[in-house]
């Protein structure tokens, strides 16, 4: 399989302390890669460096073998699409106008919208089940609907590498599952910062664990999500079992009073 994204020795600091420190990782075509870790561990910062909202202090990023930092913004936008957690737009746009913005990296300065653009916008809305909402005002949608529109925009962008920055952060469980199912079905390469370890376990092929800006663990969900690792990273006791239906690791967190080692002593 081809390597889509290769990061080597990436560092970035907001002030004196490195928010991400010498991070290296590789993402192969078709993989669903999860970035997990405590608050402030650098997941978002890493993604922002990838989608060029921040410029790294050190290190290299190769996208399809090409230096991302020297690439034209338009070209990188054709290769990768971003779905973030905050999608408030303080101006009134129609749903279809928001989705049509995903077409802009395909457009040159004097281009008009053509039938392919309109087709892609419609197609993208269909994929997320929002085609009936095309003429609605984006501002009046619920959080889950907004997130689906943003995913539709990423689909309309026709990029096959998705960068997801905690895309289900403010959503209830129904929408969380819906959003991840939708993205999984698209069969694109994904790198996603995910807060919820069970979600990461359900959907990811590879997990990178960040702590204090460094990658401390890397592997499949089975390798990474062990009771010991979770305690070391989050300081929380848990019980991890392989779920009989999904075959994935299911993590149950244990509040004070239920710690396992206590039980063992008793």
């Amino acid at each position: 399989m081809n390597v889509r994204l290769e990061i080597n020795g990436l560092s970035y600091s907001y002030n004196e302390n490195n928010a991400i420190d010498n991070v290296s990782l590789k993402i192969k075509e078709g993989e669903f890669v999860g970035l997990v870790g405590p608050n402030g561990s650098g997941k978002s910062t890493l993604l922002k460096n990838l989608y060029r909202a921040l410029t790294p202090d050190k290190g290299t990023i190769l996208l399809d073998g090409e230096d991302l930092l020297k690439m034209k913004h338009k070209k990188s936008a054709l290769k990768q699409a971003v779905v973030g957690q905050e999608n408030e737009v303080p101006f009134n746009f129609l749903v279809e106008e928001i989705v049509a913005m995903g077409r802009s990296p395909h457009k040159k300065l004097f281009d008009f919208d053509n039938s392919h653009d309109r087709y892609m916008v419609h197609h993208a809305l269909e994929q997320v089940g929002m085609e009936k909402m095309a003429k609605r005002n984006y501002q009046n949608l619920s959080g889950g609907e907004k997130q689906r529109v943003i995913i539709a925009r990423a689909i309309a962008q026709e990029s096959d590498l998705f960068l997801l920055d905690e895309p289900t952060n403010h959503l209830d469980i129904g929408y969380q599952i819906q959003v991840f199912d939708l993205i999984k079905r698209l069969k694109v390469t994904v790198i996603a910062a995910i807060h919820d370890l069970n979600m990461a376990s359900l959907y990811c092929d590879q997990i990178y664990v960040l702590k204090d800006g460094k990658i401390v663990l890397h592997g499949t969900p089975e390798e990474v999500f062990t009771e010991e690792n979770i305690y070391n990273v989050y300081g929380v006791h848990s019980s991890v079992t392989k779920h009989p239906i999904t075959g994935k690791m299911a993590i149950t967190f244990l509040p004070a009073g239920f710690e396992k080692d206590k039980e063992e002593v008793v």
Partner: peptide, 10 residues
Amino acid sequence: GDESAGALGI
């Protein structure tokens, strides 16, 4: 917003 705009190629 700046970040989304950048991610969409400007």
